[in-house]
Design a protein around this nucleic acid. Structure first.
Length: 415
RNA sequence: GGAGAGGUGGCUGAGCGGCUGAAAGCACAGGUUUGCUAAACCUGCGUACAGGCAACUGUACCGGGGGUUCGAAUCCCCCCCUCUCCGCCA
């Protein structure tokens, strides 16, 4: 949610941001509604004041009773009008995307993303590499067929040493984040509409959510929803910020409209698993915290020995709630290229305004916190390990850092 | 799933349809006293929005929505949530 004051005082800023995003939004209509709302509010408050005054008179002056009755007719009509205007404006405000950081590249899709750096050495193979789907079957560690049988196409099993690899990865990552002062969470895997709206997933990604029938609940698309929602309607002491949170959770996405896209393997699925980084911080610190999360992501991939590149995501690829976003794309050997594994967004006060998460300092400075939402790792990182660390016979070498948690150093084909 | 209790300010907890934005206590902030600490005493202390340089004024808010009334935290209706007990259960 954008600050109404910006809409009111600098509508050109909002118009420019919508234009850069390629969104066709009638900002001036909203400005007019805002003005109308304020006028109505002033009138309504005046009349209510009058009503309250007269009501107090009623005990001594019976005539006042008739005056109030009359006044209430006018007041009622105005209140109705005000309600309509408010509802309409709130709805439109909910659809308004965030402002955009200055150094966000223009562009409508990922082709316009700006590569910031490449890190790590691309592995060379002198044999024909297998993709993770093929390796998954060969090693009996990924089972998409049974996933489809039991649930639906787009669901899958991690099995055996594959599951152990994932468990090790997710556990290790959470420990690393805890060492960096993140607080560990296990969160609800469902959230109510208010929470999804507050984090910006609604209304923008409504077709991506799995709603539960007859409940005001949906399966979470990411623990960002439950972690940011954690502090809804709270005032955080500024001196104690930043709050850095991490959680491991499944993430559910309908992927409506993307059937047939990247459908091989488990790269794009209905349920994946993620360790998340969430930061609540003072507004002036959010660029720094955004970088901090990025450093964490890079550190993890470096430790795992996965080559990657960091990308400054362009406007068209960013999503309405985002102010600025970095993606990391890991090298996938079978794909012979980089593919997105993490996404790190500075949401500024977009979410905190919707969810009403404020801060207050000792000397009474108040405002809305900024939130950072960043992936630490997902299943995709496990896939990268599998594809990049494969041997000619299909054996997967486990990264050193994970071995204490897997208890083995390689995954071999089933006999 | 069955039965009951309850939702009031940061917390505990009063509240007759108007004098209640809301008693009291705790917590918190400032001050006095005291060798320090503690204690005691005094004072202050909700949020949002609008107006004003400001002291301040107005409006709204006692789970949410509707209703009755000149006037609702207080009466009526609906919904939501929380807690306790029983049953079932990872």
């Amino acid at each position: 949610m954008i600050d109404r004051k910006i809409l009111r005082e600098n509508p050109e800023v909002v118009i420019e941001s919508c234009k850069r995003r390629g969104d066709d939004i009638d900002v001036m209509e909203m400005v007019a509604l805002d003005k109308k709302e304020r006028e109505l509010k002033t009138k309504v408050e005046e009349l209510r004041g009058e009503r309250n005054r007269l009501s107090k008179e009623c005990r001594t002056n019976p005539e006042a009773r008739e005056q109030v009755k009359e006044l209430k007719i006018t007041l009622g009509a105005l209140e109705h009008e005000l309600n309509d205007v408010e509802a309409s404006l709130t709805e439109k405000m909910g659809w308004l995307p965030n402002l955009i950081g200055d150094d966000v590249p223009d562009g409508s899709d990922e082709d316009s993303n700006e590569e910031l750096r490449k890190v790590g050495e691309i592995p060379k193979f002198d044999f024909k590499v297998r993709d993770h789907q093929e390796l998954g079957e060969l090693l009996d560690i990924i089972d998409t067929k049974r996933g489809a049988k039991v649930a639906q196409s787009g669901f899958y099993y991690w099995k055996g040493k594959g599951a152990q690899l994932c468990n090790a990865l997710f556990f290790w990552v959470q420990m690393e984040l805890c060492k960096r002062n993140f607080t560990s969470f296990i969160t609800p895997c469902a959230a109510k509409e208010k929470t999804l709206y507050g984090t910006g997933y609604l209304p923008f990604f409504a077709d991506q959510t799995y709603s539960l029938e007859n409940e005001d609940l949906a399966l979470i698309g990411t623990s960002e929803q439950t972690l940011v929602g954690y502090h809804a309607d709270e005032v955080l002491p500024k001196e104690q910020l930043p709050y850095c949170y991490t959680a491991f959770s499944p993430c559910f996405r309908t992927e409506a409209g993307s059937y047939g896209k990247e459908s091989r393997g488990i790269f794009r699925v209905h349920q994946f698993h993620k360790v998340e980084q969430i930061v609540f911080c003072a507004p002036e610190d959010s660029p720094k915290m955004h970088q901090m999360c990025l450093e964490n992501e890079e550190y993890l991939l470096q430790q795992l020995g996965i080559p990657y590149r960091v990308v400054n995501v362009c406007i068209g690829d960013m999503g309405a709630p985002g102010f600025k976003k970095f993606d990391i794309e890991a090298w996938f050997s079978a794909y012979n290229g980089y593919r997105e594994v993490t996404s790190n967004t500075n949401l500024t006060e977009f979410q905190s305004r919707r969810l009403n998460v404020r801060y207050k300092s000792k000397d009474n400075e108040r405002g809305y916190v900024h939130t950072i939402s960043a992936t630490a790792v997902t299943d995709r990182v496990a896939i990268a390990i599998i594809e990049n660390n494969q041997q000619e016979d299909g054996t997967i070498i486990i990264p050193e850092v994970l071995r204490p948690f897997t208890g083995f150093d390689k995954i071999e084909p089933v006999k």
